[in-house]
Computed example of a mutant assay.
Amino acid sequence: MQNNGSSISVDEIQKNPPPYAIRSVDHALRLAAMLQLEGELTVSEAAQRLGVARSTAHRLLAMLVYRDFAVKDDQHGYRAGLVLELAAHSPSETSRLRSAALPHLQHLVERIGESANLAVRTGDTTRFIASVESHRALRVSSREGMVFPAHRTTAGLLLLAELPTDELGELYAQARYEGRPDERPDLRRLRADLARVRRNGFALNHGRSERGVVAIGVPVHEHDGTVVAGLSVSMPSVRYERGRLPELVTTLRAAARTVEGSL
């Protein structure tokens, strides 16, 4: 989560930074992600989001412009440059999903006021391919590009719930976790959780991936009915109200349908 420009995120707590982190590189990468995911930024907005001086933000943006990651317009705003635009229009399946979902994620954030994500599954992991942050001071930060154990994420539960029983057993076979048994989930408990997800048609993650965070998600289908991704919103648990769950699920399902219509 972030609070008033702090760079500490839920994901940074879970995923340790490299031992010799280069702050300027981290700032530049975060700016590039903001430009691609959220659109135009001013120097002042960039400085506030990163928690740095305007002069520092200006130098970072100037370097992004120099390397074609950003473009400066006549109103002194910065937007995604050629490199980011090319990445967004890559012909890969992931890029297609991401491009289709981003506008709807942004609309979802505006409507619900919480961070929104789209994630896909690769084996026993979940990768977040699109993320838009809430504009609130206390919020769950962007998870764009991050990878987590599938059984610990909302989208992962949605996607695992689609697997046949034998395929799920093979995925979490004990032999595959030799040398790392602590990473293997309790299969009996996981099967019960997935049965609940199938029965409800949505997944509720209350502190499963990180204490203090609640996430709610629904599946995104291809035209042939195949579930290809999980669409979710995440929020600080202090802001979650159980009575809002039906409303949130309904809003998420409507958003998922609009994403499906864009695929």
Rank of each mutant, 00 (worst) to 15 (best):
S9T: 10
S9D: 13
I13H: 08
K15N: 11
P17N: 01
P17W: 06
S24I: 12
M34P: 00
S44F: 10
A47T: 10
Q48A: 08
S55Q: 09
A57W: 10
H58Q: 14
L64R: 01
Y66S: 15
R67A: 06
G77Q: 07
A80Y: 03
L82G: 05
E93Q: 10
T94N: 03
S95I: 05
H104V: 01
L105P: 00
H107A: 14
V109L: 07
G113V: 06
E114R: 04
S115Q: 05
S115K: 00
A116N: 00
A119H: 05
R121C: 07
D124F: 09
A130P: 00
V132P: 01
E133S: 05
E133D: 01
H135D: 14
R136N: 11
R136Q: 12
L138T: 12
V140Y: 03
V140H: 05
S142G: 12
R143F: 04
E144L: 03
P149T: 05
G156H: 04
L157K: 04
L160Q: 01
P164T: 06
P164F: 13
L171Y: 14
Y172R: 00
A173K: 10
Q174R: 11
R176G: 12
Y177D: 14
R184I: 13
L187T: 13
R189P: 08
R191Q: 11
R191C: 09
R191P: 01
A192V: 07
A192N: 04
R198G: 10
G201H: 08
N205H: 07
G207C: 12
S209C: 02
R211C: 00
G212V: 11
I216W: 02
I216G: 02
P219H: 04
P219V: 00
S232E: 11
R239Y: 02
R239L: 14
E241Q: 05
E247S: 08
T250V: 11
T250C: 07
A254H: 05
A255K: 02
V259L: 02
E260S: 13
E260F: 10
